[in-house]
Write a protein that binds this DNA or RNA. Structure first.
Length: 211
DNA sequence: GCGGGGATTAACT
DNA sequence: GTTAATCCCCGCG
């Protein structure tokens, strides 16, 4: 049965992001996902750091190989989960961007977990947040606009002044693409990933964590 | 088939 | 700063 409809317009507060939200290029989607809530069953966290991975032209993107068994969901419509294993150890969670035929995805790199006194390090880093939310390759290919357990919910809007931009992490092999400004994060947020021992490093004029 | 290496992390020296 | 852990993708022959 239908749940009770709120007294106000049911359209002012959608429970989840719908398919059309994801139909934009990866760099735009990476920016737009900041502040949104990633939900898996009873666990959730607010996205505070993302990276955009573009199509075959992006030498850091899995799409650079063309469509393969592993990355094929990147070539499909936006809003699909792309989850893969990295270094044989860590599951990496991505949101596919764009329309079918336009390869791209957004890597979720850090979440702010709810609850006062929650250790911010638990979801700081792409490998750690999948563990915190219980995500794995079993979720690869799920439709985030329709799945009952895994989806994205609207959160607070992040003002443009609070969004920092910089190069992506861990892709030094990618030539000129290594310097592309495709990493986005909430400036000064404690859950944003950074090297374990460089927390004393100077943050050049709020440009963000040194890396 | 084989071999190199990776969108990372934690635990070393 | 350096390195192990640990799996499997991808290119090549």
């Amino acid at each position: 049965m239908a749940r009770p409809v709120s007294a106000r317009s049911p359209h002012t507060s959608p429970r989840r992001l719908s398919a059309r939200f994801f139909r934009r290029p990866a760099d735009e989607l990476a920016r737009a996902l900041l502040g949104k809530t990633l939900v898996h069953a009873d666990r959730r966290g607010v996205i505070v750091e993302t990276e955009a991975y573009l199509g075959p032209e992006d030498l850091a993107s899995h799409a650079r190989f063309g469509a393969t068994e592993r990355n094929r969901v990147m070539f499909g419509p936006g809003g699909i989960a792309y989850v893969y294993l990295c270094y044989g150890v860590h599951e990496m969670f991505n949101v596919v961007s764009g329309s079918a035929g336009q390869a791209g995805a957004v890597l979720i790199r850090a979440l702010a977990l709810p609850g006062p006194g929650r250790d911010p390090s638990l979801a700081r880093g792409p490998g750690k947040l999948t563990r915190a939310l219980g995500l794995s390759r079993a979720h690869n290919g799920l439709d985030l606009a329709r799945d009952e357990r895994l989806y994205l919910a609207p959160g607070r809007a992040v003002p443009a002044a609070e969004v920092a931009v910089g190069p992506r992490v861990g892709i030094d092999y990618a030539g000129d693409w290594a310097a592309a400004p495709l990493r986005f994060w909430v400036a000064d947020h404690p859950a944003v990933s950074r090297p374990p021992r460089s927390r004393r490093g100077r943050r050049g004029s709020g440009a963000g964590p040194a890396r």
